[in-house]
Amino acid sequence: MKKIALPTRNGNIDDHFGHCAFYTIITVNDNNEVAKTEIMPSPEGCGCKSNIAYQLQEDGVTLMLAGNMGMGALNKLSSCGIEVVRGCSGPVMDVVEAYLKGELKDSGEACSHHGDDGHECHNH
């Protein structure tokens, strides 16, 4: 089983992960099929300053399919053991299907308006 988080707004990938309306959490079974879809509310404020990375880690998420994000947020998610694929766009389920078919690649681009603010995720 694998859990994937997608920052969501109006059924599409939100281009700025820290400002999304909510997260769609997709559970993928061992046959690479969507087994379950859940919604996780998004915290107020910027993603790199919230504890969303820790919440996602607690929920068992190991991958985020996202639009763009700053390096601070990317580093925070990475330190929580969450792999990030940036540059995703379009309807959430289309993005999940593309990932499951092996068609997605990380864009390698980060938003430049957030620096690396040194936030880290810690297991409690």
Results as ranks from 00 to 15, higher is better:
L56H: 04
C20E: 04
A53V: 11
I39N: 02
H19M: 15
C20S: 11
D30V: 08
H113L: 10
F22H: 15
I82N: 04
E38A: 07
H16D: 08
H124K: 11
V84W: 06
N31M: 09
G47R: 08
C111Y: 04
K3P: 00
A110L: 12
S107E: 07
H16W: 10
P7L: 04
H16P: 00
E44L: 13
H114M: 15
K3S: 02
T24S: 04
S79C: 12
D15C: 00
S112A: 05
G115F: 10
Q57R: 13
Y99F: 10
I26Y: 01
C46P: 06
V34T: 08
G108M: 04
F17M: 10
E38M: 03
A53L: 09
N32Q: 12
N51C: 05
R9P: 00
H113W: 13
T27R: 05
M93T: 05
E33Y: 00
N75H: 15
M71R: 15
Y99Q: 03
I25R: 02
K76F: 09
G102D: 08
I13C: 04
K49M: 15
H113K: 10
S112C: 04
C46D: 11
K3Q: 04
V34S: 01
V92S: 07
N51H: 09
T62H: 03
N29M: 06
K101H: 08
A35S: 11
I39F: 00
G118R: 12
A73Q: 13
P43R: 06
G108P: 06
N32A: 08
G60P: 01
G102H: 05
T24L: 02
Q57A: 14
M64S: 12
N51L: 09
C48I: 15
L104R: 03
V95G: 03
E58I: 01
D59T: 06
M40V: 05
C121G: 15
V34H: 00
N31H: 08
K36W: 00
E83A: 07
M1D: 07
D117K: 13
I39K: 12
G115V: 14
I26M: 02
E38L: 03
Y99D: 00
H19K: 15
A35P: 09
H124A: 09
Y23K: 02
T24V: 04
H122K: 15
S79P: 04
E120H: 14
I82S: 05
P43G: 06
S42D: 06
G87H: 01
I4V: 11
K76A: 09
A35N: 02
C121T: 10
E58W: 00
C88A: 01
G115K: 14
S78P: 00
G81H: 03
I52S: 11
L74M: 13
T62R: 08
N31F: 03
G45A: 13
I25K: 02
A5F: 05
E58L: 09
N75W: 07
A110P: 05
E120G: 12
D15W: 09
M93K: 08
H113M: 12
G102E: 05
D59E: 12
T24W: 02
I39D: 03
D117T: 14
G45L: 12
L65N: 01
E44S: 13
D94C: 02
E83P: 00
V34W: 01
N32K: 14
M71E: 15
E97S: 09
E58Q: 13
L77H: 08
K3I: 02
R9W: 09
H114T: 15
T8I: 09
V96W: 01
H122V: 14
D30K: 07
M93S: 04
Q57K: 13
E103V: 01
V61M: 03
S78K: 10
